[in-house]
Design a protein around this nucleic acid. Structure first.
Length: 242
DNA sequence: TATAATGTTTGAAC
DNA sequence: AGTTCAAACATTAT
C-alpha cells in the first residue's frame, strides 16, 4: 500500500466525497473527532505518503505506515481507526497514523518536493542533494524532505534503472547522473502508479526481490544499506558505485 | 508457523 | 546537546 503512487490511488478513490458534508465520524483514533462533525471536506490531496483530508482551517493527515489499509463503501472485520461517512458513501481507515494539523493544507506542505505532484521541482531536489554529499544515495532517495513519496521499492527500481549502486556517495555521483536519478525517481513512480492500478506491479520488478540480474544474468546482491538500514537489491556488475 | 516486509515517530541511551 | 538506536505500532504473504 504505502508508497507515494498508492496514496495517489487512494486520493483518486475519494474524489466522490470531495465537497461533501460529513454526516458521521467514528473510529478509535485519538484525534478530536468532534472537530470534523458536520464539516465539508474541501479536497483530498496527497503529499508523498501522506493522504490529506482538507478542511477550511485544519487538515487531517492519514499515514498508512507499513501496514495501514482502507476500504471505500465496504467494511473490514476489524475496528476502524477512522471512519468517515458522507451522504453518498463512506471510507474507513485501518491501522494507520491519524493526525489533525491546524491550518489549511497549502500553508502546511511544500508540494514541490512530492515526486508525484505536478509542481515537483527537480532543481530544488538537486540543490538538496548537493547539501548532503556524504550521504549514501540509498538514504538520500528515502529522504522525504527531498523525494516525498519514494519508498523502498521505488528506491531500488530507480537506482537499477539509472545503473547507480545504492551505496554510492551522493557527492561522488556526476551531475548528469544525479540529474538522471532525479528524473527517473518521478518517471518510475508513474510507472509504479500505472502498473499498480492494473495489479501488475510485481511482475514489472527489475531488481526488487529478484535473484538474477535481468541484464547480465549475474546474482543480485541483497543487503541492508545506509543509516536507514533498508533492504537494497543491486547488481555489482551493472550498477556503478561512485 | 515463524519470519520478514512497501514506514515513521518516539524516547532512552550514549 | 547532538547522535544513534531499539521499540512501538500493526498486517499479510511466503
Amino acid at each position: 500500500m504505502p508508497e507515494g503512487p498508492s496514496i495517489v490511488i487512494l486520493k483518486e478513490s475519494l474524489i466522490q466525497f470531495k465537497g461533501k458534508q460529513l454526516i458521521g465520524v467514528s473510529g478509535n483514533s485519538k484525534i478530536d473527532q468532534s472537530r470534523l462533525a458536520d464539516k465539508y471536506v474541501l479536497d483530498f490531496k496527497s503529499w508523498g505518503k501522506h493522504l490529506l483530508i482538507c478542511f477550511d482551517d485544519f487538515t487531517v493527515k492519514i499515514h498508512l505506515l507499513m501496514f495501514g489499509s482502507y476500504t471505500v463503501n465496504s467494511e473490514k472485520d476489524r475496528a476502524a481507526r477512522l471512519a468517515l461517512t458522507f451522504s453518498n458513501g463512506y471510507v474507513n481507515f485501518y491501522s494507520c497514523s491519524v493526525t489533525l494539523l491546524e491550518g489549511y493544507v497549502d500553508d502546511l506542505y511544500d508540494f514541490t518536493s512530492d515526486v508525484m505532484n505536478d509542481n515537483w521541482d527537480e532543481v530544488k531536489a538537486l540543490e538538496k542533494l548537493k547539501e548532503i554529499p556524504d550521504a549514501l544515495v540509498c538514504d538520500a532517495l528515502l529522504e522525504q524532505d527531498i523525494f516525498a513519496g519514494v519508498g523502498n521499492i521505488i528506491k531500488n527500481e530507480t537506482l537499477f534503472r539509472v545503473r547507480i549502486h545504492p551505496e554510492s556517495h551522493v557527492g561522488n555521483i556526476p551531475n548528469t547522473h544525479l540529474q538522471g536519478l532525479i528524473t527517473e525517481a518521478r518517471n518510475y513512480s508513474f510507472d509504479f502508479l500505472n502498473w499498480r492500478k492494473e495489479f501488475v506491479l510485481k511482475k514489472h520488478y527489475l531488481i526488487y526481490n529478484q535473484k538474477v540480474c535481468k541484464i547480465c544474468n549475474s546474482k543480485i546482491v541483497r543487503k541492508n544499506t545506509g543509516v536507514k538500514n533498508r533492504r537494497s537489491f543491486f547488481c555489482e556488475n551493472c550498477q556503478t558505485k561512485y
